[in-house]
Design a binder for these strands. Structure first.
Length: 274
DNA sequence: ATATTCCCCTGGAAGC
DNA sequence: TGCTTCCAGGGGAATA
C-alpha cells in the first residue's frame, strides 16, 4: 500500500495520538511475518513514554524516552489504529500495544509484508542501523537533479525502476513513480543514464510536487490503505496515469498506455512522455 | 556492480 | 453460482 505520502500521513496521526502516552505492554496476537519479541519489547519499553513518531523513507519510527523504540514498515497492507482496550479483534490484527489510560494501538496486516519490531535508535539522528543505507529524502535538500544525474550515470535500468530504488531516493513507489514521470514528460522505459540534466530538473520537481500534493490530500487509497482514523485518502482522484490504461491523457487526450518495468505495472502517455 | 526474476501472503476482481 | 487465474502502494534474496 503505502508510499511516502501514506506513511507520512500515518506518522503524523500516530504522533498526535501517541505522544506523551505510556506503554504498559506489548502483546503478540499472532501470525507476523517476522518474529516479534514481546518479552524484549516489554523489557525495553514497558512503562516508557512515547516521545514522538517520525517517518524515514517508508518506515515509521516510534520514539520513547529510552534508547530503543519501535521500527515499523507497513508493507502492502499494514495499518495502525487506536481502539479501546479489549475491543474485539479484527481478522488480521497481529500486535497490540496496551497504553496506560484505557486505549491500545493495534497493528493489523492482511498480507504480512510489513513488520513492527524493537530497534535501537542509534546516533545523533536516532536511526536504526538497518536504515543506514537508504537514499535521500525527496523533500529535503540532499535530493537534487544534479545528484540524481550523477547517480544515474551509465545506468541502463528503466528510469521508473531507478527512481523506485530506495538507495537512490526514498519514498517513491509504483503510484508516485508513474505520476512523477508523467508530470516531467519523461518516458518510464528510458535507460536512467540517458535522462538529461534538464529532464532530471523536471523529474526531481515532479517527484517533490506529486508527493507534497499527495500528503496534503491524505495519500491515495487504491485498495487497502486507510489512515489511523480509518478514513481513506483522496489523492487517488488526482492521479493522471496510474491505473488509467486506455483512458484519455488529461493533457493531450491520447490513450494512456500500460507496460511493465521490474515486474510492476507502468502507466504513461505515449505522446507526452518521451 | 548491475539487471532481472522470483518469492513472501491474502483477498478482491475478473474470466470462464 | 462456482472455480480458476491474475493482480495488488514493498522489499529482499537469488540468479545471470
Amino acid at each position: 500500500m503505502p508510499e511516502l505520502p501514506e506513511v507520512e500521513v500515518v506518522a503524523r496521526a500516530l504522533d498526535a495520538a501517541l505522544r506523551g502516552r505510556e506503554l504498559e505492554r506489548a502483546v503478540f496476537i499472532g501470525k507476523c511475518r517476522l518474529p516479534f519479541d514481546a518479552a524484549a519489547t516489554n523489557a525495553a519499553l514497558g512503562g516508557k513514554t512515547v516521545a514522538g513518531v517520525r517517518r524515514r523513507a517508508k518506515y515509521l519510527l516510534i520514539d520513547f524516552n529510552a534508547p530503543s523504540g519501535l521500527l515499523a514498515h507497513l508493507g502492502m497492507t499494514g495499518n495502525f489504529r487506536i481502539v479501546r482496550r479489549g475491543a474485539p479483534r479484527q481478522k488480521h490484527d497481529r500486535l497490540a500495544f496496551i497504553l496506560r489510560g484505557g486505549d491500545e494501538l493495534r497493528y493489523a496486516d492482511a498480507r504480512r509484508f510489513g513488520f513492527v519490531r524493537l530497534a535501537r535508535m542509534d546516533g545523533r539522528e536516532r536511526i536504526p542501523e538497518e536504515l543506514s543505507r537508504l537514499g535521500p529524502e525527496p523533500l529535503e535538500r540532499a535530493f537534487t537533479a544534479k545528484a540524481m544525474l550523477e547517480r544515474a550515470r551509465k545506468r541502463k535500468t528503466p528510469i521508473k525502476t531507478f527512481i523506485m530504488d530506495q538507495s537512490v531516493v526514498v519514498g517513491v513507489g509504483n503510484i508516485y513513480a508513474n505520476e512523477a514521470l508523467f508530470a516531467a514528460g519523461v518516458h518510464p522505459g528510458r535507460p536512467a543514464g540517458t535522462v538529461a540534466q534538464e529532464e532530471w530538473t523536471r523529474l526531481a520537481a515532479g517527484i517533490k510536487s506529486v508527493l507534497r500534493r499527495a500528503v496534503k490530500k491524505g495519500g491515495s487509497t487504491i485498495r487497502d490503505y486507510a489512515g489511523v482514523d480509518g478514513k481513506e485518502g483522496a489523492f487517488q482522484r488526482s492521479l493522471n496515469v496510474y491505473g488509467r490504461a486506455g483512458a484519455p491523457c488529461p493533457r493531450c487526450g491520447a490513450a494512456i498506455a500500460a507496460a511493465r518495468h521490474g515486474g510492476r505495472s507502468t502507466f504513461f502517455c505515449p505522446e507526452c512522455q518521451t
